[in-house]
């Protein structure tokens, strides 16, 4: 019987190695906060985080950064008053700025087995300096490489034992594409449902992309 549920946070986070690249889903909503606290407790170091924003001085991403566990962040948005910005000024963190759509597409491509693609986004900006560009269809385009990762941390609203997921409202955001791009995809879900409960046409992330699922009931975020 296929059963992707794990009974504890410790088991959910087991085996994440030092040096791992970790995709962190979420955009205001749909943040896998419990799994992030699990990663903090798990202890892996020298991590590369791929996350939309590193804009805060609090919250689980900032805590991982502040604990000195992260070597590099790839993100689309950094604020001056953020832990990421402070660590970069101190020479303790590398930040790679990636336009948000390029970030999403690099992750999607990674999950889809596409090695790289050309896009006009950022082709005419400082982000393209020293990188490969070419004119395609009359437009200057920038070569962007796919992102795959050792681990993806994903949030869901409902999950069944095959790992089929739904995401509530705008909590979907990066979750389905990060689930695709992680070699080990770990999910926290608000609700556990029996196999077949989610109508097949309503599955938003298919279970084939999911490895482990942890039940984190509402109000039990950390």
């Amino acid at each position: 019987m296929i059963d992707k549920f794990v009974p504890s946070l410790t088991e959910a986070m087991a085996g994440i190695a030092d040096g791992a690249t970790v995709l962190i889903a979420g955009f205001g909503a749909g943040i896998p906060d419990t799994l992030l606290r699990g990663l903090l407790a798990q202890g892996a170091r020298d991590l590369t985080l791929v996350v939309n924003a590193a804009a805060s001085e609090e919250g689980p991403v900032a805590e991982l950064l502040a604990a000195g566990r992260v070597r590099k962040v790839m993100c689309s948005f950094v604020r001056a008053a953020s832990t990421a910005s402070r660590l970069q000024r101190e020479g303790r963190l590398e930040i790679e700025m990636v336009p948000q759509g390029t970030l999403a597409e690099r992750i999607r491509a990674g999950g889809a087995g596409i090695q790289a693609f050309y896009t006009p986004t950022a082709a005419d900006t400082v982000l393209a300096e020293g990188r490969e560009t070419r004119v395609i269809g009359g437009k200057l385009c920038l070569l962007e490489h796919a992102i795959t990762a050792d681990v993806a941390l994903v949030d869901a609203w409902e999950a069944d034992r095959w790992g089929n997921l739904t995401h509530r409202a705008t909590a979907r955001n990066f979750n389905p594409i990060m689930a695709m791009a992680g070699r080990l995809t770990i999910v926290q879900t608000r609700h556990v449902v029996a196999l077949g409960t989610i109508p097949p046409q309503h599955v938003q992330t298919a279970g084939v992309f999911v490895d482990r699922v942890l039940h984190v009931p509402e109000g039990d975020a950390a």
């Binding site: 990636v98 336009p99 948000q100 759509g101 390029t102 986004t121 082709a123 900006t125 400082v126």
Partner: peptide
């Protein structure tokens, strides 16, 4: 500026060209 610690790219580069 390029040394500015606040870098708010977000989706602007994608939207602007698309």
């Amino acid at each position: 500026g390029l040394t500015e610690p606040t870098r708010q790219i977000g989706g602007a580069m994608d939207l602007a060209v698309g």
